[in-house]
Write a protein that binds this DNA or RNA. Sequence first.
DNA 1: GTTTGATTAGTCAAATTTGACTAATCAAAA
DNA 2: TTTTGATTAGTCAAATTTGACTAATCAAAC
Lengths: 166, 166
Amino acid sequence: MDRKLLLLGLLRMQEMHGYQLNNYLDAFLAFCLDVKKPTAYYLLNKMHEDGWIAVEEQQEGNRPVRRIYSLTPEGEQAYQNLLRENLGSYAPVQFDSDIGLAFMDSLPESERNLLLAQRRAQLAQKLTEIEAVPEHPGNFQWMIEHQIRHLRAELAWLDEIITRFA
Amino acid sequence: MDRKLLLLGLLRMQEMHGYQLNNYLDAFLAFCLDVKKPTAYYLLNKMHEDGWIAVEEQQEGNRPVRRIYSLTPEGEQAYQNLLRENLGSYAPVQFDSDIGLAFMDSLPESERNLLLAQRRAQLAQKLTEIEAVPEHPGNFQWMIEHQIRHLRAELAWLDEIITRFA
DNA sequence: GTTTGATTAGTCAAATTTGACTAATCAAAA
DNA sequence: TTTTGATTAGTCAAATTTGACTAATCAAAC
């Protein structure tokens, strides 16, 4: 549902064709949200079938056809509903990385430490990357800020684990 | 992959039948990990087909048959590989709740505040629940500790947002 | 006596997600 | 002049995940 909300919200800000949409997801939101291209098209089609999204074809010169997606009134209504649902509830997240931590004991100490160091490096890398992301349009800035805080907390937590086990 | 690691790790600690396994997931790990019953069976079957897991049937009286799942040597090897892969890398998490935050502007202030208060209540509730969870066997304790820290940070973040917008 | 709830096994169809792939046009680099 | 990379559109089969459901036994509550 949240992914639908995302697509509706983006198209509501500005109608777009699929390429633009996927490009935006890739270029600006990939740090925080992972929506693959076929997923986006799947959802666009579904919402089109449900009458939430209108499609208009445009041709420019001999280039491939552009399909502009935009919200219908039903889409606007759905957007409002999904938005309320999302805002009014807390969706817990899962830390799949913790599964490995739970079973660390089955590795020799030296290897465990090596792997954890590797994990730490990746985490730090990701943090550096996202801290370098420039200002973002609209309220997406918060998504980044949230992610940054989260990654900092994760790094601190991982360091604590590493220390406890060193 | 991580869910496979989880199941392998659990069966490695102690061989179990499906009911036991699902029960354990439900009763002890549901706070941190969400693995539904059909998913568990799907993975058990798959790993059985791949030769990672052995199944032995037991009958006790007239009760339905028990199928005890346990690791094969290949399963042990797979476990080692998955564990290394998991431990040595950082898997980023996604905050789907942030999607709503990004679009808050489209709601009237009063409703927005109401919904955010509702979200906060849910979050606080979840935190209370998990803080009340008793000691956990083995290293699963960390998963809980991690989740608690995370929820506290989330609560603080949400409060900050609410304040900024009040 | 009967109904409920725990124990044991799942299944099944449907929804969702993804990796890998195709196809055409045009601008710019080599 | 050829090749590469961006622009535009996706598709397709496969993997995964889930909600809703079935079926049998036994103990305990009512």
